[in-house]
Amino acid sequence: MTARLLLHIGYHKTATSWMQQRLFVHEHGYHQIARHPEVWRHVVAPHGLLFDPEPMRALIRAGIDDLPAGMVPVISSEILSGHPFFGGMASDDYARRLKAIAPDAKILVSIRSQMRILTSVYMQYLLRGGTMGPELFFAGDPELGFFGFRPEHFEYHRLIGLYRDLFGVENVHVITQESLKADMDGATRRLAAFAGNAGFDGVLPTHRSAYAPSYPEYAVPMLRRINKLQKSVLTPAPTIKIGTTPDGFYRAFGYVLRRPPFSWALGGYHPVSAHVEKTFRGRFDASNRELAKIAGYLDLSDYSGVMATTKSAMPSSAKARLASAR
C-alpha cells in the first residue's frame, strides 16, 4: 500500500533546505515527487482567476505511479507558507489550493521561535540584495505596497489552524527547528511515524550536518550598502553595478568580516537581534499560547509567552504518536 503524500509547506528559515536535501531522501525512505519550480508553476504563480488544480494533480499522480517501493511521496517547498518579504500574503489561498489538489495529503509545518526567525529572515533579505536597514524592513511601511514585512505571518497558530480545518487535525504535524537541533532522532522519528514511513531508522551520520550560518549581524551595515552597488533579485537595476549579490563584493566582504580580527572586535554587536527584541518582545505571546493548545506535543519552552510543555499535557493522539515513534 502506497503511503499518503506528505506536503511540507515551510516556514522559511526553519531548516527547510536541510530537510529537502538531507532528510527527505531515499536513504531515509522518502521520495520527492516535485520541487520548487513545479510548486511555483502549478500552485503559487497562477492568478486566482486562472488557477486550475489539474496540472499539479497530474504531476502528483505521475510521481506516485513511479514511486519506488516502500517510499513516502513528499513535496517540500517553503514557498507554500507564503514569502516573509511579502508578509506571507496568499498563504491562506495556497492552503485552499492544496486542498483542491491533494485533499487526502498529510501536512507538515516547520516553525521556529519568532525572536530568532525574524533575525534570520532579515539576513536572508540581505542575501537577496535588500538595502533597507532592520528598522525600515520590520516597520512594514504600507507605502511599500505588496512588498513588506507583516508580523501576523509569524502567528503560527493561524495558518496551522487553517490547515487543521481543511485537512483534519490528525493530518497536520508541526515540527520545530529547535527540536531538530536538540533531539534530531526523536523529532525525525515522530515525523516518520506521522508520515507512515515504517522503514525510517534514524538520520544517517553523513546527513546530520547543518548548512553554513548566515553572515554575522555586525556585518549588516556594510553588506546592505554593498547591495546598493550590485545587481540582485531585489535590486535588479542598481545605479552603479560592480557585481551580483550574493556573489562579488557581498561574498568577499562577508567572508572577511566573518573572521578575526572583526569577529573578535565586533562579535558582541547584534543590531538586528537587538531591534527584534526591542520591537517584538511579547508580540507573539498570545499566538504561541494558542499554538501550545493545538499542538501540545511540541516543546515550546523557547517560544515567548509559553511555559515548557510536558508530556502530561499532551493530547492522547500525540502521546500515541510519540509511543509509536520510539
Rank of each mutant, 00 (worst) to 15 (best):
A3T: 04
A3I: 10
A3V: 03
R4K: 15
L5Y: 09
Y11T: 03
A15M: 12
T16K: 14
T16Y: 04
S17M: 13
W18I: 11
Q21L: 05
F24C: 15
Y30Q: 08
Q32P: 03
R35I: 00
H36D: 01
V39P: 04
R41C: 12
R41T: 14
P46V: 02
P46G: 01
H47A: 10
H47I: 02
L49T: 14
L50W: 02
F51L: 06
P53N: 09
E54T: 15
M56G: 06
M56E: 05
R57N: 02
A58P: 04
I60D: 08
A62P: 04
G63S: 04
G63L: 02
I64A: 10
D65E: 15
P68Q: 12
G70R: 04
V72E: 07
V74W: 12
I75V: 15
S77M: 15
I79K: 10
I79R: 14
L80N: 14
F85G: 14
A95S: 05
R96W: 09
R96Y: 10
L98H: 03
I101D: 09
A105P: 09
I107A: 01
Q114M: 05
S120A: 11
V121A: 12
Y125T: 15
L126W: 04
L127Q: 14
R128I: 04
T131N: 03
G133C: 07
E135T: 11
L136Y: 13
A139P: 02
D141L: 13
E143Q: 08
L144E: 02
G148R: 09
G148P: 08
G148Q: 07
R150P: 03
E155V: 11
Y156P: 06
L159M: 00
G161Y: 01
R164I: 02
V169L: 12
V169T: 10
L180R: 06
D185E: 15
D185Q: 07
A187M: 02
T188K: 05
T188W: 06
L191D: 07
L191T: 08
A195P: 00
N197F: 08
N197I: 13
D201R: 11
L204E: 07
L204I: 03
A210Q: 13
Y211V: 14
P213L: 09
Y215T: 08
P221S: 11
M222N: 00
K228A: 10
Q230H: 14
T235K: 11
P236K: 13
I240N: 07
T245Y: 00
Y255E: 08
L257V: 08
R259S: 14
A265G: 11
P271Y: 07
P271D: 12
K278M: 08
R281H: 04
L291D: 02
A292V: 07
A292S: 12
Y297H: 00
D299A: 00
L300A: 00
Y303K: 01
Y303G: 03
S304C: 04
S304N: 14
M307W: 10
T309N: 02
K311Q: 07
M314V: 01
K319D: 03
